[in-house]
Amino acid sequence: MTKALRSYLLLLRWQALSQKPLLPLNMAVQIMIAIGFVIGLSFFYPEISETTAKYLITGAPTIIILMIGLVLLPQIVGMARKEGTFDYMWSLPIPRMVYIAADATIWILVVLPGVIIALAMGAAYYGFGLDISLLVIPALLLVAISGIFLGYAIAHGAPKPEIAHLITQILVFVIMIFSPVMYPVEQLPDWLVKIHNFLPIKYMADLSRGTLTDLDVNLGLAFIVVGAWCVAGFIITYFLIRRRR
């Protein structure tokens, strides 16, 4: 067993144990959000066509992942920063990216049940079939990892944890209301469409739509754009956590 793998497994244990008091609660909340999302849609749209339902439900993974990656994660990392967690973890003889990998693994485990439940329940509730491609695994993993790295970048990049907290509050709003996840991109004003052509949100939703349904999306472009954001998030996180005061 290589040294990095050994460290990874030990840190995975450390992180799982550390989060144990909150982990079931976090998972339960994520599952409840997923269920609420599915049922709540029928209140938004009393008359919902199969295509609309398909469109909206397959946007759910993106919403759930971004809520966790860009909102919950920076808040929890911010708390950990305040408590001096990283001063301790960074003093251990382990590569810092191995710690991040172990932590990200836990986050992916938190995200997954909600994503799966939202999709399965949504399809059953609104009575449409999913057209699942094998690419769904890399696609959702890429969305999850990008969300998590962007979250780390916010959490470690903000000068103070409180500022990270504030940024997450703004992001919730932008993701929920001003993103083409809950409605088609055509309904946005032109200037916002142009901005979304560069942001990852639309493409993240495309990744799940393209791999779970027969909806017509440019999957290649979505992989490229989200991939680029993922790499950017990784590089920023890498430099931020290696930085010395």
Binding site: S7, L10, L11, R13, W14, L17, S18, Q19, K20, P21, L22, A80, E83, G84, T85, D87, Y88, M89, S91, L92, P93, I94
Partner: peptide
């Protein structure tokens, strides 16, 4: 970090771990 082991002035982040788990895990790490 390989050569030094370190007890920081701030408290260690072991809220969810038992004392023995924390000590043993660091030993293994």
């Amino acid at each position: 970090r390989q050569t030094c082991s370190f007890q920081a002035q701030t408290q260690v982040p072991i809220a969810g771990l038992t004392a023995i788990q924390a000590i043993e895990l660091v030993g293994l790490i």
